[in-house]
């Protein structure tokens, strides 16, 4: 890890009219670090994620990102063109529902290749070779490259979505409940895969989840949210083993034991 963070978030708030989406969120994210944002539904996790990924504009507060050239840029002051460029090169966004993040009517190969073509790659053979490589990295058979994601299972779709996001070598990936809706064995394999990729590529990630086990497996640090506010944050193991805020204690004690 370097001595400078990748993302600096300061007093970020989002209000929907008089309702609070998220309020006064402040944190830094370092390169290669995975931060989990946990909390019950309606606690503002997804609002926070959408604000950070500039899919939503916050009501107040700032977020700065350190670009590849080392320059700090304030996200909400960038032009839309720059934000969209960042979104498809240096960032990734993994949706809970893969259909939101994939093009369901074009082949798996084209789904992976789209970002490459968007940044100007114009060599079919090279694009295809990269797609084959990435499909194998997310454990999708090479002979499925020309199939549409419609023909894929939920777990495969999610893995394809991950490949599609990582193909341009992003430095920061946003994940919204990446394992939601998958059965536990598929979840376990996906988590294993994600953990491997994040470590290999040195990715920084912000993972929104309501599943504390996912947070425990993937993240080094976590923030617990309730009613739009961060009630506790710290190292994942510390928060889960020694929860201090009453709400975190409730959350941790609510995990079903098998």
């Amino acid at each position: 890890m370097t001595d400078e963070p990748l993302l600096r978030v300061s007093a970020l708030s989002k209000f929907y009219g008089s309702r609070v989406g998220c309020e006064n969120v402040t944190f830094d994210l370092w390169p290669g670090e995975v931060l989990a944002v946990v909390g019950e539904s309606g606690s503002g996790k997804t609002t926070l994620l959408n604000c950070l990924s500039t899919r939503l504009l916050p009501s107040s507060g700032t977020a700065s990102y350190r670009m590849r050239d080392g320059q700090w840029r304030e996200l909400y002051r960038m032009s839309e063109a720059e934000r969209r460029f960042l979104m498809r090169t240096d960032w990734g966004f993994v949706h809970q529902n893969p259909a939101d993040g994939l093009r369901m009517t074009v082949s798996a190969g084209a789904n992976v290749g789209e970002r490459l073509m968007a940044v100007g790659d114009r060599h079919y053979g090279k694009i295809r070779a990269t797609a084959v490589d990435w499909l194998s990295r997310v454990e999708i058979d090479e002979d499925r490259i020309d199939d549409e994601p419609r023909a894929f299972s939920g777990g495969m779709r999610q893995r394809l979505q991950i490949a599609r996001n990582l193909v341009t070598g992003p430095r920061l990936v946003f994940m919204d409940e990446p394992t939601g809706g998958l059965d536990v064995s598929v979840q376990a394999r996906l988590l294993d895969l994600l953990r491997g990729l994040v470590t290999d590529l040195g990715l920084a990630a912000i993972v929104v989840t309501h599943d504390l086990a996912v947070a425990r497996l993937l993240s080094q640090r976590m923030m617990v949210m309730k009613d739009g506010r961060v009630v506790e944050s710290g190292l994942t193991d510390r928060v889960l083993d020694d929860p201090r805020a009453p709400y975190t204690q409730l959350l941790v004690s609510s995990i079903l034991q098998v």
């Binding site: 839309e80 093009r103 074009v106 082949s107 084209a110 970002r115 490459l116 694009i127 295809r128 020309d146």
Partner: peptide, 18 residues
């Protein structure tokens, strides 16, 4: 407006793949 034309090549890619 933003000259984002990667998608157009996705169509041509699909043609070649198929």
């Amino acid at each position: 407006a933003l000259e984002e034309y990667g998608l157009m090549h996705v169509k041509l890619y699909e043609d070649i793949a198929r």
